[in-house]
Design a protein around this nucleic acid. Structure first.
Lengths: 94, 94
DNA sequence: AGTATATGCAAGTCGTGGCTTGCATGTCAA
DNA sequence: TTGACATGCAAGCCACGACTTGCATATACT
């Protein structure tokens, strides 16, 4: 079902990518890589980040568009609604 | 950080356990096992479900209490708040 | 054209997660 | 106490996921 969604946010690197995109939307792959190293202490290769982004895209959490030789990425939090819709996040009534 | 939370909901069997507990709170391990098989088509062993429950407990999504030879489990959705608090789930303003 | 830049593709390695198996512990009922 | 029931513990297996490596493609710049 929305298996991709839960898999996508299961990895700490991918969560950091989402954090980065929320803070600064529309980054390219290279931009993301360097910023992840700088601010999040992540030292993965470019290919690793690229693979993470593919997963995030298939989960709908990231929208990407190719422009020239760059590929820019935007955050999309809409799929996250499914989580709180599925389980009540509020405290139970006693 | 709240790494346990994301790992906990990454597995489809654990998500089904949460679904079951939301629908019928306070089940024992055996109760859970049989209902997971019946209604969710899950055919894991008792030990597998038990291990899943341990993970869900450490994530705070399930609260358990031992009574006699039974151990009962309750759902707690409060940790899920961290997800929507971390990333904006609503559509972006354009 | 040629070179540098930005990204994509594919195969291989390695660790971890989910599951099983077997046995141990603990509780109730006769 | 003995046996049945409910759960816990620990080691091992196996597949999948994260990552790397090497090469390919594509776009810009001079």
């Amino acid at each position: 079902m929305d298996d991709d969604l839960y898999r996508a946010i299961a990895d700490p690197t991918r969560r950091a990518i989402l954090d980065e995109l929320v803070e600064r939307d529309g980054q390219s792959l290279f931009e993301l890589c360097s910023r992840l190293i700088m601010k999040h202490g992540i030292s993965s290769s470019r290919q690793a980040i690229s693979q993470h982004l593919e997963l995030l895209e298939s989960a709908g959490l990231v929208v990407a568009r190719r422009e020239g030789r760059y590929k820019f990425h935007w955050f999309n939090g809409e799929p996250l609604k499914a989580i709180t819709k599925r389980w009540p996040a509020n405290a139970k009534k006693r």
